[in-house]
Computed example of a mutant assay.
Amino acid sequence: MDHFNRLVSEQMMTMEKLLYLQGELERCQEIEQQLLAIQNETELESVQFDINQMKKELKEIQEIFEKQTEEVIQSYRQTDLEPSI
C-alpha cells in the first residue's frame, strides 16, 4: 500500500504542476490577444515564444500524468489482488 500511496502523492504533485501551467498558459494567451490588438510586434513574439514553450511543457507533463495514472491503476490492482494480512 505504501507504493500505491507514493504513486498517488507523485501524481498529485504532477497535477499541481499541470494546473499551474494551464493557468499560466491561459494568462499568456490573454496577453497575446491584448498585444495583437495593439500591434506590439516585439513583445508579441516574446509572448508567443513563451506560449510555445509552455505548450511543450504542458504536453510533457500530461504524458507524465497519464503514465502515473497507469502506474496507480496497476499498483491498486496488485494491492487488491494481494491477500490481506
Rank of each mutant, 00 (worst) to 15 (best):
M1T: 03
M1F: 03
M1I: 03
M1P: 07
M1W: 02
D2N: 12
D2M: 11
D2P: 07
H3F: 08
H3S: 11
F4N: 11
F4Y: 07
F4T: 12
N5D: 02
N5K: 06
N5W: 07
N5I: 07
L7D: 00
L7M: 02
V8Y: 00
V8T: 08
V8L: 03
V8K: 10
E10T: 07
E10S: 13
E10A: 13
Q11K: 14
M13V: 12
M13T: 12
T14D: 09
T14I: 10
T14G: 05
T14L: 15
M15Y: 15
M15L: 15
E16K: 13
L18Q: 10
L19C: 07
Y20I: 08
Y20K: 14
Y20D: 11
Y20M: 11
G23N: 00
G23A: 05
E24C: 11
E24N: 12
E26Q: 15
C28N: 13
C28F: 10
C28Y: 06
C28S: 08
Q29G: 04
Q29R: 04
E30R: 15
I31P: 02
I31N: 04
I31T: 05
I31F: 00
E32I: 01
Q33L: 11
Q33N: 05
Q33G: 04
Q34T: 06
L35R: 02
L36E: 03
A37S: 06
A37R: 09
I38N: 01
I38Y: 02
I38C: 10
Q39R: 14
N40W: 03
E41I: 03
E41R: 14
T42G: 05
E43R: 13
E43S: 10
E43W: 10
E45P: 00
S46K: 12
V47Q: 00
V47G: 01
Q48D: 00
Q48A: 04
Q48I: 00
D50A: 11
I51P: 05
I51L: 02
Q53A: 14
M54W: 03
K56I: 15
K56D: 15
K56R: 14
E57C: 08
E57F: 04
L58T: 06
L58I: 07
L58K: 09
L58G: 06
L58C: 05
K59Q: 14
K59C: 10
I61T: 06
I64V: 12
I64P: 02
F65H: 13
F65A: 09
E66T: 10
E66R: 15
E66I: 07
K67N: 08
K67A: 12
K67S: 10
Q68A: 03
E71A: 11
E71N: 05
E71C: 11
E71W: 01
I73D: 03
I73Q: 00
Y76A: 01
Y76F: 02
R77Y: 12
T79N: 05
D80W: 13
D80G: 02
L81M: 02
L81W: 07
P83K: 14
P83L: 09
P83V: 07
S84C: 08
I85W: 05
I85M: 01
I85Y: 10
I85A: 07
